[in-house]
Write a protein that binds this DNA or RNA. Structure first.
Lengths: 231, 231
DNA sequence: TGAATAGTGTCTTTCAGACAATATGCC
DNA sequence: GGCATATTGTCTGAAAGACACTATTCA
């Protein structure tokens, strides 16, 4: 017996991974991208896209990379959510997962990857009850964060094209919050925030009064007033 | 040459650690516990208490354990803050740190531990500009979260004894928010939240009108109204 | 009775929410 | 002119903020 190896003194290293809740709006429904797992564990079940963090790769880069691998999309809104680290959440061995959420507006073609048999957008109300790992919990957390952010930041800019009508903006809010909003009150509030401005354009070729087109003053993430203190 | 070892295919595992921002109020100043590092890296510099996560140890348990090791305190308020994972934040090797923040009211005797030469409470305004690692950033983040939580939750219960006067409660708010509050408006707002209730006791042996003593209705963490959506 | 802090009420402004009629362009 | 959606304002109630005087106990 030689002397105890130094590694014995260091706690066993867990794996570190990122998982991403990617939101978009499809046919007036808030949807999340899920992957059907092609390998164990949870083979055949749906789960969030994600994967291991590479050596010397920043966490957010890892999330962006996984996102790009699944959707081909770059430069989208990405925000760290929470870190999940229950000891047996992954049967392959201790895995710490840093969860992110992402928002995209233009629907990409979904790619197939090595680990994934299949990728599919699920409306939030039709998400399978039993995703792999603790991913239902992560999604629940992401939904809360998204709804909160919607009310107190300009995050909606990531779910809309550059130019949009106030009705389209309102629809995004209604879809995400899951309730109807009063048109007059909605406009009053949104305009008072000073996040969007009218353009000189109107939407053409509609069989009704052409609506004004608006744009966000900045695409940069803005948190409103004292709630700025949150992050 | 045998076949390539399986471990070659798996990304190199980083270390996983927790760091804790422990707040308390000492002599009317919001203070944070720092440890003077007794070993490299950053030997001699101040840093947040923290350490590696053990095998099969939940993240929050690890944070609670580190906290107990430094302060001897158990059962205190602990909340996950954010996960920091820049590739070279720790010179010893890639380390993902899950940051927590904690609140304590009764000041414990500080213990010395193996890794720590010294432990000391620093008022937030006197925190050294150059802590070890990225700990200044973590503290900045924790302060924002604390201020936000103060306004929209009953978190202040963790910084006060069981019974307290309204003036003492107001002082906690003023200290943390860093500004004076109007006594009448403060009382109106706090009472309207329904988080505290009067007791039959009054503080005795004071050289002025004896104040009413109050208590929090519950010590359980409560997030107010729709801001509940945050967490 | 003086010192020190406790305890209380009104007014104004702002914001959220309820609510309905007119405007515009296309066919 | 009919259709479909766009656009606009008022009232009310709730909450936040500014502001100053009286009450109580002790020494």
């Amino acid at each position: 017996m030689g002397k105890t190896k130094k590694t014995k003194l260091i706690p066993e290293k867990p794996h570190v991974a990122v998982d991403i809740v990617i939101f978009t709006i499809i046919k007036d429904r808030l949807s999340i991208l899920l992957i059907r797992r092609g390998v164990a564990p949870f083979k055949g079940q749906w789960a969030l896209p994600g994967g291991r963090v590479n050596k010397n790769e920043p966490l957010e880069k890892a999330a962006a990379r996984e996102l790009g691998e699944e959707t081909g999309v770059k430069d989208i809104y990405l925000e760290q959510l929470y870190t999940f680290g229950a000891p047996f959440r992954d049967p392959r061995g201790r895995t710490i997962s840093v969860a992110y959420f992402a928002l995209i507006s233009k629907l990409p073609k979904l790619k197939a990857t090595t680990d994934a048999e299949d990728a599919q957008w699920f409306p939030v109300r039709k998400i399978p009850q039993r995703l792999g790992f603790d991913h239902n919990e992560i999604i629940s957390y992401a939904l809360k964060r998204l709804r909160w952010k919607l009310e107190y930041t300009n995050i909606a800019s990531n779910l809309l094209p550059k130019y949009f009508t106030l009705s389209e903006l309102q629809r995004v809010y209604e879809i995400i919050l899951g309730k109807k909003l009063d048109k007059r009150n909605f406009r009053k509030r949104i305009l008072s925030l000073g996040l969007i401005k009218p353009t000189r354009k109107k939407r053409k070729n509609v069989a009704y009064r052409p609506p004004q087109l608006w744009k966000f003053i900045t695409h940069k993430h803005i948190v409103l007033d004292k709630r700025e203190l949150v992050f």
